[in-house]
Simulated assay, not measured.
Amino acid sequence: MSGTADLVKAIKKELKAARMTYADLARELGLAESSVKRMLARGDMPLSRIDAICRALRLDFAELAQRVADSQPLLNELTLEQEHAVVRDDRLLLVALCVLSQWTLEQITAHYRLSEADVIQRLAQLDRLGIIELKPLSRYRLKLAKAFRWRPHGPVMQYFRDHVVLDYFAGGFGGHGEGVLLVHGSIARALAPSFVERMQRIAQDFAQQHQADQKLEPGTREGYTLLLAMRNWEFAAFARLRR
């Protein structure tokens, strides 16, 4: 569970939501109001006291623990050490990409030649790395923000540049629902960030649609990879011809 400060913060939030004052809670616990204030200020509470507070709030302890976990800040990016750990094992990288798409254990084992034990082992590694919070029955909570991205010059993106980019672009992009666009032009420098924001919205729309369509029958869904990019760049062979 998270630290005591997070627990106290969650309790105070639940008190406010229930419109309970410290005096109200004190009566429920059979304590003086000053004792309740001191207890919450110090964060010094045995488990039996936390259970009593949960009963006063008409709240299950597991619900309170979940709310504490949900309140934790999400990661926008990993550290270099975390990314190195992810790319060190191809199977760990595969499972990491699956959890980014919120795949279940059952979906991963049905789609790839990985045993249940293999996947659970990698989920445990991702839990230790702080990427997910592993729960009973191999369920998990993703600890990455919606705006999460791999480090632009980090180990994971380098792995994709070395091993994936050519494989991706080797396709003809002529299949159903496929397409590739290459647009070059000069625009006001101040406008460039607005195009990147639009790209991010498209990526979020794609990710949200993926989540929404998980309830559909597997046979009605296809796996697509959306690649969006924009950079200040000129092909090296052309740059060599510049005056």
Rank of each mutant, 00 (worst) to 15 (best):
V119I: 07
I108L: 12
P46M: 10
L74W: 10
V87P: 08
Q72R: 10
G175N: 09
V156G: 07
F235R: 08
A5Y: 11
G154D: 11
T4D: 01
R38V: 04
G43A: 02
L100P: 00
H184K: 03
E234C: 06
P46W: 09
E14A: 12
E83L: 05
R49D: 08
N76T: 10
M20K: 15
F238S: 06
A239I: 02
V156L: 13
D205P: 06
E28Q: 15
G171R: 14
F206I: 09
E28M: 15
R161G: 04
L137M: 03
K16P: 00
D44T: 11
R189G: 01
I11F: 05
L29Q: 15
F160D: 12
C54N: 06
K215I: 00
R149I: 01
F173P: 06
L97I: 08
R38T: 10
G179V: 03
M45Y: 02
R149Y: 03
R38M: 11
L78P: 04
L227D: 07
L97E: 15
V180G: 05
Y112F: 13
L129V: 12
G174C: 09
L129T: 14
H210A: 05
A192I: 11
L227F: 14
R58P: 00
D118N: 14
R189N: 04
F169E: 13
A145W: 14
D162W: 08
K37C: 06
R42N: 05
E83P: 03
L137I: 01
M199Y: 01
T220N: 02
V164Q: 08
L25D: 10
K146C: 02
H184M: 00
A203T: 01
Y112P: 00
L182I: 14
Q66V: 03
A17M: 01
G185H: 01
I131W: 09
D6S: 11
Y22I: 04
D60R: 15
L105Q: 09
E197H: 00
A147V: 07
Q102R: 12
A203C: 02
A23Q: 14
L78Q: 05
D213K: 00
Y168H: 12
A145D: 15
R198H: 01
E77Q: 12
